[in-house]
Simulated assay, not measured.
Amino acid sequence: MSAPQPQFPVIHGYAVKANGEAFVPWQYTPRKLGPNDIEIKIDHCGICGSDIHTVDSGWGPTHYPIIVGHEIVGRVVTKGDSVKHLQLGDLVGVGAQAFACQKSDCRNCQNSMDAYCPHFVGTYNAKYADGQVSQGGYAEAVRVDSNYAFLIPKEIDPQEAAPLMCAGTTVFTPMLHHKMKKGDRVGVVGIGGLGHLAVQYAHALGAEVTAFTTSENKRQDAIKLGAHKVVNIRNEDDVKQARLSLDYLLVTTNSKHTDWTLLTTFMDTSGHIILLAVPEAPVNFNAFALIHQGISMSGSLIGGIEQVRETLAFAAKHNIRPWIEKLPMKDVNEGIERVRSNKVRFRVVLSN
């Protein structure tokens, strides 16, 4: 049997070639299609805050030129000989991960923690074992390991599915890990691309949801999304009433102005703070604030195969959808600028 012939021997997209530059048309030759790989013709790709941190080298060195984008939805156009669970023409989504080893001796892969696999390859700005840099979804196509392409439920519009691949999975994964349930008191800091989905997922679980924001004009949005209470962190009365009120707090903002010690005051005894966004600067807080109430703090990266599937299924069942603004892929620079200036309600989706 002859090897499948990819439809995109060269992939065209929009790349940043150096820190501080705009996105420009660029093309690259993708890595060879392996037996477990698929090639996807991209229809839609969301703009994630991680994309901006990456093109700005905010989290460390970037492999320029770089095509970012890891909220991808499109159709399977080529597949390797070993791919059995996907068919040509299937509508699939890809999130922030393009590969993990899936080996029997990999503790993380075998325990549904493949997002922490030591051989993890991100959808962009990462290196495969052969040294080639992964490139993302601001493009006409992408190749990934077929394990990291997920069938999109028919109930979900493809454009709305895109942000669920990263933002949705990122917020729902810790809810699954901590087994959040009806009656739990869950706070969400930051009502943006991640936070507006976190409010919806927590509400659908039956939690009592409190949204924390510094923007009074997001109060009504938070209520529409399912928040039972809204706390303006700049309002002293709101802050006073929110003290000792939470079991869990999801931090979805990476603002350098976040008062981490203040956040601990919202936690009841043995409460848990979960970091989902990554500030570029170190996080500072008063350690005694944790000890005094027995508060714990942890981080959560993205989600593995099992968590992405559950994220999509739960969204389909409970009608959880991102609020999106749509732009053609060629207007990527406009989309990026809207995200940078915090003018988006709440996610930009680019379409080919």
Rank of each mutant, 00 (worst) to 15 (best):
A281S: 14
H203Q: 15
A277P: 02
S82G: 09
I67D: 10
N125T: 10
T264H: 10
K179I: 02
S270V: 03
Y248Q: 04
P322E: 04
T269F: 13
F288A: 13
H177A: 15
E280A: 14
I52L: 15
Q110Y: 04
T252W: 01
I42Y: 01
R345K: 15
A162K: 02
P25S: 06
I320V: 14
G206A: 07
R345D: 12
E334Q: 15
G206F: 07
Q159K: 15
N254D: 14
M113D: 11
H177T: 09
R234A: 11
F172V: 00
T265G: 04
N147T: 11
A18M: 06
K182M: 12
R75H: 15
K229E: 12
E21H: 05
G80D: 12
T169F: 00
D247G: 12
A162H: 02
T173Q: 01
R243F: 06
I302Y: 06
I295F: 11
E71Y: 00
G206Q: 06
I336S: 11
H119M: 08
L197H: 04
A139V: 01
T269W: 07
K229P: 01
F99A: 07
I52H: 10
H228P: 00
K84Y: 05
L151A: 14
G46Y: 00
P25D: 07
I66F: 10
R107M: 05
Q87S: 11
G58C: 12
Q97N: 04
G131K: 12
H318N: 15
N108F: 08
D37N: 13
L88V: 09
V231F: 08
N147Q: 14
Y148R: 01
W323D: 10
G294L: 10
S296I: 05
M165F: 00
L33C: 01
R107C: 03
S270F: 11
K154M: 05
T269R: 15
A3N: 12
K229R: 11
L290G: 13
S104F: 03
F212H: 07
V77G: 09
N352P: 10
I291Q: 14
C117A: 04
A211N: 07
I295R: 10
I66E: 15
L91I: 09
S351I: 08
P322I: 00
N333E: 07
G136M: 03
S146T: 10
H177G: 04
V344N: 00
I47E: 08
P30F: 06
N111P: 02
P174K: 09
E21Q: 09
G80Q: 12
A227I: 04
K330F: 02
H196F: 03
I191V: 13
R143E: 09
R243Q: 14
K256V: 11
G195S: 07
S300W: 03
F212K: 06
H44V: 01
G49H: 13
I273P: 01
E216G: 09
V76C: 12
D145T: 06
G187M: 09
A211C: 10
I274Y: 03
Q220W: 04
K326W: 02
I42T: 00
A287M: 11
L263T: 08
R31F: 10
V83K: 03
H292I: 11
G226T: 05
T269P: 01
V55D: 03
D221T: 11
D247R: 09
C48Y: 02
T62A: 13
N319P: 01
P328A: 07
P4Q: 08
L249H: 06
D43T: 03
F8N: 10
L262G: 03
T214Q: 08
H257V: 05
N108A: 13
L312K: 00
V121G: 05
D268M: 08
K127Y: 06
